[in-house]
Design a protein around this nucleic acid. Structure first.
Lengths: 209, 209
DNA sequence: GACTGTGAAGCCATTCACAGCT
DNA sequence: AGCTGTGAATGGCTTCACAGTC
């Protein structure tokens, strides 16, 4: 199977499969079928096999997949066989929380610089990182070879901050601000819009009932 | 156009359109075309018109849409013409931050109870809400007519907490824990997986370069 | 017998393109 | 002339179903 374009939905599921496999490994499971993975994460077994097929043949017919081995492949595919240095811009409520959140580090993402435009915040400490002013952006990106930026500034500042991240050489941006951002092609951008998610819920509760 | 099943992607975009319209309103814009909305939020104009068409005819041919009016329709559709009381389970790093985050309240979601299993956290205050033990779940849900729950507990506790939310009568759940949850049909569930989003970035940075 | 890997079919969302209004 | 609303065409993801392998 030769494919050059991988559906984004597939990538997201691979991430979920990989975490489920970690869970299975902790429980001492050594071999798993696509059906079992599927049940564990709430998709169809055909979906699991199709997703994996984009990247190779990892299983054994009649048997299934070796948990340890498949997990290794997935971590490699997702780029999690290395650590990623991350810079965060915006140390407000959301930014501070995300900086303190252990989930990122557990998967190899190390927040090694946190910047904020607010002078009152500069100097404060989150985990072991001191909040610094925006001026040091270029320096920190170079110093830590940072590829990934997380934007948690208010909507009005989001585009400007993004432009500065791109200018400093950051290649991928995770945007938590409720604003649609423009980035040059070649820069990877993802938006996590917390309100949108709640609103999908309220829509479903309101509509058709 | 008679449709009973609305694509989830459409609902998410409606939420984004509505925020863009709020933005336009603040800027004093009175009329807007599908093309202008499209440029503002990064989709095609056909997409905008198709999304709106699921719910009615809101524009004027040759002219466009009245910002104020369309915004009103969208807020109604999304269920944002009312306030929603929300209960949050888990007052760890992420939970506390989300509770403090103003973005939810701005869109009408009021976190009016925060519970945590950890006795050490009980009694602490986040905004004006005091963290309480899990035992008061049923009481709070009834008391505030809560329909929506936010789960920010560690993965191991997520399913149990979800079951309790469902049992207490909550109809929609926003899950921030990195675990796939099972809920009875009829319960609306959405997952916001923060790590998955970062991993889509690392995948894109690693794969094919 | 069990389970993977995969072409084909089915389904759903997006884009096209134009008729219909203003 | 300009822009919406929408059936038809397209494209892409998911499911089906089964050949291939252990």
């Amino acid at each position: 199977m030769k494919v050059y374009k991988i559906p984004e939905a597939t990538v997201m599921r691979l991430s979920i499969y990989s975490r489920h496999l970690q869970h299975l490994r902790v429980e001492g499971v050594e071999t798993v079928s696509s059906e079992e993975i599927a049940n564990g994460v709430g998709v169809s077994s055909a979906q699991v096999r199709k997703d994996l097929a984009y990247f190779g043949e990892f299983g054994t017919r009649g048997v299934g997949y070796k948990v340890e081995e498949l997990l290794g492949h997935l971590m490699k595919i997702l780029g999690l066989d290395q650590k990623w240095n991350v810079i965060m811009i915006g140390a407000g409520k959301l930014g501070s929380a995300l900086a303190l959140y252990e989930g990122f580090r557990e998967r190899g993402f190390v927040i090694c610089a946190i910047l904020d435009a607010d002078e009152k915040k500069v100097g404060e400490k989150l985990t072991d990182v001191i909040i610094e002013p925006l001026g040091v952006l270029d320096a920190r990106v170079k110093e830590h070879s940072i590829n990934i930026g997380i934007v948690t500034v208010p909507a009005v500042a989001a585009q400007e901050v993004t432009d500065r991240l791109v200018a400093s050489g950051v290649k991928a941006i995770l945007n938590f601000s409720p604003r649609v951002l423009k980035v040059p092609s070649g820069i990877v951008l993802r938006n996590v819009d917390l309100s949108v998610n709640l609103e999908v819920l309220s829509f479903n509760l309101s509509f058709n009932r």
